[in-house]
Design a protein around this nucleic acid. Structure first.
Lengths: 237, 237
DNA sequence: TTCTAATAGCGAACAGTGTTCAGCGTCAAC
DNA sequence: GTTGACGCTGAACACTGTTCGCTATTAGAA
């Protein structure tokens, strides 16, 4: 290196260019990490290391880790596919479909959804989703206030479900077993634990151990979504 | 001290006795901290410092921080007051009442509820609450599987709501302002932000800015709870 | 009473974390 | 050519959870 300063200079310039820090690049890199390891894996050092530099270099582009997480969250909200036209007749199915699509995206990025619980997401992409869901409900005849609150509750539900799912994924990953085998094992353990409870104090849990552990995360999500969305019927004009 | 070894010895023994470490004492102390500062404030060093010792001393009574948090969570579940008798005729109101009571307790301990999202709570006190709510729904005629899933969804909703509320509380505390003033300020900021959005891209959010920021956390919680519980009607008999 | 085995508790250390800050080298404008 | 600005960086600070020997005390046996 030092023997060929002209080349070294060129190489350094190239290296610098290759490694040029940008807000977008930082967010993109952090998103790759969160997709693979969850929020836990996203440390300023870890992100910076991907650019072969130290953590302090990031602070020129991002105020702090919290801002980075919020930028990341809004970025993934941009991945939510939003229907081009809303159909008042199918408003409930459209709301559910958008919720499922949102869930699909959130689950892809593990527990990043927890960021949304730290405050109302106001990024442009998050607003696009909110606007879409609000429009659907209002088109269906839900009064504005109820629509606004339902929107709030559904997004809270989405975030919570994503968090729970991320915990499962993390447990599975750490166990090293196959997902099916691991889930089956936990289900059996839990069922036998419930079945072993005191018949006097906890009769219903004991008796219905199988029901308590039935259904996967997807089915339970759908169950809760139905309650939240279908229940809006009562507010219709 | 060193000049009067016999006295020092006595004092040390007294200090040791006064400061005797117990699982329960550790959990109690950690709960006091989480009540005042949230989970963020609960570090092994911080808890140990309350006993005038180092963090390693705790590991004789608690496997790790995760176990400590789980013990703490089950402990607060013991604070949830459960009705002595269930009334099938009032099953929906009883379920809601238990949910409100649970919320009251969870909110007291800031974001400790997040622990529950890391896995199915299986502690004795958590089971007592589950048994109670399950009994109420089954007494009301909800089929077991739907009751079990509803229980799951309601607890997830409770945890999420508590997390969101804890974030608010933290923001308020950090702002130094009075809660009323702070909330009013955020509401106005948010409303004017919505009102400023693009009329072409986000017409509904813009138009209904006031509805978007209306209602406090309690009202929104009640709104979501109604949807979740009342929606169970459809599964009756 | 004396000796021994067990054990609770503890200090120090390790590998991490977010964040700050003085100073570096480079590059653009004058 | 010089200077000013600015992106960038290494080092440091005050933390975090957890582990590992060692010490001091205690309980039980002889």
């Amino acid at each position: 290196m030092a023997e060929f300063p002209w080349r070294a200079d060129q190489a350094r310039r190239a290296a610098r260019a290759r490694v040029q820090l940008t807000r977008d690049e930082i967010v993109r890199t952090a998103l790759r990490i969160v997709r693979e390891e969850g929020v836990e894996g996203v440390s300023m050092r870890r992100v910076a290391a991907e650019f072969r530099t130290g953590p302090s270099s990031l602070y020129a582009h991002v105020a702090n880790k919290d801002e980075l997480l919020r930028l990341m969250f809004d970025e993934i909200c941009g991945e939510i596919r939003i229907p081009t036209e809303i159909d008042p007749a199918r408003w409930k199915e459209q709301v559910k479909e958008l919720a499922r699509e949102s869930r699909r995206v959130l689950l892809t990025y593990n527990d990043l959804a927890g960021t949304a619980m730290a405050g109302v997401p106001t990024g442009p992409n998050a607003l696009r989703s909110s606007e879409a869901m609000l429009s659907m409900m209002m088109a269906g005849g839900v009064p504005v206030e109820q629509a606004a609150w339902a929107l709030d509750r559904i997004f809270l539900y989405l975030a919570a479900d994503a968090m729970e799912f991320a915990m499962w994924k993390r447990s599975i990953r750490e166990s090293g077993e196959t997902p099916e085998h691991f889930i089956q094992g936990v289900r059996e353990d839990l069922a036998s634990y419930y079945a072993q409870l005191s018949p006097e104090d906890l009769p219903n849990l004991r008796k219905n151990a199988e029901a308590m552990v039935s259904g996967d995360n997807g089915l339970r999500f759908e169950f809760g979504l139905d309650l939240l969305v279908d229940g809006l019927d009562r507010y219709l004009g």
